[in-house]
Write a protein that binds this DNA or RNA. Structure first.
Length: 666
DNA sequence: ATGCTATCCAAATGGTCTGG
DNA sequence: CCAGACCATTTGGATAGCAT
């Protein structure tokens, strides 16, 4: 607390002043971090309620910083619209005339006309003359202006394509600004099971406590926008607080929010009746918590749009991952105390609350596909909010939360294997030996037999050998290319319903993205052994007829993975036809099975597209020795029964055939 | 007892990212 | 801009061990 003497010394000139005063101290100029120092000063001001007048330097520093921030957002980030920018700048100027100069200087870096506009404003409204030499307005300036006008227009017109849009029609967005309407509204809400909640307020740049300007409540087919400013005037203030509190305490209504803690905090300061709202709220589901603590372990929940990409943060990101399109956040920083609000503000506000419902519905729909339950996944948050009541120490809280997560996960996964994997997820470096046992644990008898032709698999880069063998056994198998990211497995797995086969550390990376039964960690080193291991684990039945039943031809090296023909349908060509085609002296079209073959060019006349047999790849000496050829009707690759098949059946695949029966081995 | 160092832990701080 | 949450890192105080 000896810092207290230091605190009142304002920023930069103060630091040197301070240093000169305390000769004995070991303070060095360059070591004083100005940012931290200002921060500390601000904190102390707040803590001891020091009046603004006593700290002019800090105050003006903050105002000019805020102005700069506004300009930055307006001109660089471009997420404030003209009207809001004007409103907020005027607020600051009103509060502190001294910022005027800085405003003009800052604006000059971006837009001369804009600076000019404000010089005029400051002169007319505040009676101050800013002496700057404005550069001559050059001819291109009007064009410049138009550009901005376009941009503003574009923002205010409802942007058509890339953003997520509000589902309920606009006339179901209902503005509430009278006590009667408000009571009726709350009455209506009480009948709902599920509501989406959000609040907006105007950004403040000083320490004035923010007040909620708008409260949005979304129900299935409507969104209520509560004009808190009007309602506060019209109501006995207490009554409004009690109405709110009633809603929050109502156990039978599930409230959905995103970072709703912050909103509740503002409400609790604003309404006496809501003082303990954070502690007393019932049945609140906060998607912020879900987003960061639950979703990372259950990424399959957003497989529709997410596809193994890195997780995006913020409500915006969550909506994009789960619902497919991002929100348009450009109104977020706008003036929520303006009346009436813009059309785009209204839509933004309604959407912010309504999207929470849609998130919930989407998860509700997704979760059962993976054997999970939404409420089970979301439940821990209800306690999560409650648990923060005391400052009893972050560590405890963190620990408690972690165990809650574990609880949620284990109730979802529900077996012993799961608890082992949870240990791993929880962070402690468990060594691979343990994990290996983890993989081979489940009772094989519990897994139904899968015929090889129905086993669908995606194989990671380091198991390409295994992939090749699996294909030869008739398994539909996608193989990743070397330079391809492992995460591509996840995308393919989710999109094409394939089991991921991988090994090593990658397994740990990938397994959180897919349901546990969709990924397997291969232990064996040699492809043949691996084949046995995998087929054994998944109880895959390989018949002799499966072997070489699929076309093995590599069509092309796709950017992502090897594109294999993988077709199982062949045209059977007797030797005599093959010979005449190779000689090239026949004009006949013959019917072979389900297909017709134009022998002039060796083209299969198929249903979809005509395919040319790859005659060039048949060595001349082969035909006399073989009686039947098989042409892949998809890519035209030609096969014949050579020694290959026999060798394979009696050789490398011997142990795999009929494994289902003799599954004792391994 | 005194001084020095090593060790541990909670509190403080910095950084980043969200919300408005 | 500010507040808050989270996470990693730092800090400073308390303590124990050792030598003086």
């Amino acid at each position: 607390m000896h810092h207290r003497q230091k605190k009142e010394v304002p920023a930069d000139p103060g630091i040197s002043c301070l240093c000169s005063i305390s000769r004995s101290s070991r303070i060095q100029h360059e070591k004083v971090n100005q940012k931290s120092f200002t921060k500390l000063a601000n904190r102390l001001v707040k803590k001891y309620d020091i009046p603004q007048a006593a700290i002019p330097n800090l105050t003006s520093k903050r105002s000019t910083a805020f102005i700069r921030h506004l300009v930055h957002r307006r001109f660089n980030l471009k997420d404030i619209q003209l009207q809001d920018f004007d409103d907020m700048v005027k607020d600051v100027l009103k509060e502190d005339h001294a910022t005027a100069n800085d405003l003009i200087q800052t604006l000059l870096e971006y837009s001369v006309p804009e600076a000019k506009k404000w010089v005029d404003y400051i002169f007319e409204e505040l009676g101050l003359i800013i002496s700057v030499n404005l550069p001559e307005l050059s001819p291109d300036v009007p064009a410049n202006n138009d550009e901005w006008a376009d941009w503003d227009a574009e923002c205010s017109s409802s942007t058509p394509v890339p953003y997520y849009t509000l589902k309920p029609p606009v006339d179901q967005v209902i503005w509430i600004d009278t006590p009667e309407a408000c009571r009726e509204c709350f009455h209506r809400i009480e009948q709902e099971r599920l509501v989406g909640l959000d609040a907006e307020w105007k950004v403040v740049f000083d320490y004035a406590p923010p007040r909620v300007a708008l409260l949005q409540v979304a129900i299935t087919d409507q969104v209520f926008l509560l004009d808190m400013i009007a309602l506060c005037d019209a109501f006995q203030k207490q009554d409004l607080g009690f109405l709110l509190m009633n809603l929050m305490q109502n156990e039978s209504i599930i409230k959905l929010g995103y970072g709703f803690d912050a909103d509740m905090k503002v409400l609790s300061k604003q309404f006496q009746a809501c003082k303990s709202i954070t502690d007393e709220v019932k049945n609140l589901i906060d998607f912020d918590y879900f987003h960061h603590s639950v979703l990372p372990n259950h990424l399959y929940l957003c497989c529709n749009h997410h596809n193994g990409m890195p997780i995006k943060s913020s409500l915006n990101g969550l909506v994009e991952m789960i619902l497919g399109q991002p929100l348009d956040k450009r109104e977020q920083f706008s003036n929520w105390e303006r009346r009436p609000l813009n059309q785009s503000q209204l839509v933004y506000a309604a959407l912010d609350a309504y999207c929470l419902l849609e998130l919930f519905w989407s998860l509700e729909e997704q979760a059962p596909n993976f054997g999970a339950d939404v409420l089970e996944l979301l439940k821990p948050l209800k306690q999560g909010v409650k648990a923060k009541s005391n400052k009893s120490g972050r560590r405890k809280k963190a620990k408690a939360q972690r165990s809650r997560i574990q609880g949620a996960i284990s109730s979802y996964l529900q077996d012993q294997e799961a608890s082992a994997s949870i240990d791993a997820i929880a962070g402690d470096a468990k060594c691979s030996t343990k994990e290996e046992s983890l993989c081979s644990l489940p009772a094989r008898s519990s897994i139904p037999v899968t015929p090889a032709s129905q086993f669908r698999v995606v194989v990671d880069t380091m198991l390409q050998g295994l992939g090749k063998h699996m294909r030869q056994c008739g398994v539909d198998c996608a193989v990743l290319d070397n330079k391809q990211d492992h995460a591509e497995c996840v995308r393919l797995s989710l999109k094409e319903d394939r089991v991921i086969l991988t090994r090593g550390k990658v397994f740990d990376q990938l397994r959180q993205y897919v349901p546990k039964e969709r990924i397997y960690k291969v232990v064996e080193e040699k492809p043949i052994k691996q084949l046995q291991e995998v087929f054994g684990f998944f109880n895959v039945d390989v018949e002799e007829s499966d072997i070489f039943s699929l076309c093995q031809h590599v069509i092309r090296k796709h950017e992502m993975y090897l594109q294999i023909c993988n077709n199982g349908d062949f045209i059977e060509v007797p030797t005599e036809f093959m010979v005449t085609m190779l000689d090239g002296n026949s004009r006949d079209v013959v019917t072979l099975g389900n297909y017709r073959l134009d022998m002039t060019s060796g083209t299969i006349l198929g249903a979809s597209a005509n395919v040319r047999l790859q005659l060039d790849h048949v060595p001349r000496e082969v035909p006399p020795r073989v009686c039947l050829f098989y042409g892949c009707v998809s890519c035209g690759k030609i096969y014949w029964d050579g020694s290959h098949l026999g060798r394979a059946v009696s050789g490398k695949f011997r142990d795999i055939l009929g494994m289902r029966v003799t599954q004792s081995q391994y």
